[in-house]
């Protein structure tokens, strides 16, 4: 399953055509978010890096449990599952990951932020007392 990040200018149609042009004997299905490909494991393994090359930080790929067009998981038949809603949300947030990929590519330092600590009871009492006055 290949998802195009919302920030990419690539369309599912262009993506599908590019995969076709690679000439591998794999099935390709254009979807509203990108494309699904299916076929011999070795061929998929060869195709994936080339597909990524098309827009490296804005194309995201994972394996999918059900074959293309499988009715058992078809949204039209079974309604959306948490898996679908999750993809909806992950797709929305792909630009954050894109930013991360670009940052590591350019060697940008990304230090972790210190964790927010909870207010101490003493401090809370102090605030409450001040509010009282």
């Amino acid at each position: 399953m290949i998802m195009i990040a919302p920030t990419s200018e690539l369309t599912p149609d262009q993506l599908a055509r590019f995969i076709h042009s690679l000439g591998y004997e794999i099935s390709i299905k254009e979807t509203c978010y990108g494309a699904n490909i299916e076929g011999d494991k070795d061929l998929i393994a060869k195709a994936v890096p080339k597909i990524r090359g098309l827009d490296p930080n804005r194309l995201f790929i994972k394996v999918r449990a059900y074959p293309i067009g499988d009715e058992r998981r078809c949204r039209a038949h079974h309604g959306s599952r948490p898996g679908f809603n999750q993809l909806e949300k992950e797709w929305m947030d792909l630009p954050f990951i894109e930013a991360g990929l670009c940052a590591v590519e350019s060697g940008e330092e990304c230090p972790e932020k210190p964790k927010r600590k909870r207010l101490s009871v003493e401090k809370l009492i102090q605030i409450a007392e001040e509010e009282n006055i």
């Binding site: 949204r75 309604g79 959306s80 809603n85 909806e88 949300k89 929305m92």
Partner: peptide, 11 residues
């Protein structure tokens, strides 16, 4: 059996 379809926002 049918499964009411909802989106992320609707949930």
């Amino acid at each position: 059996m049918v499964y009411p379809d909802v989106s992320y926002e609707e949930i």
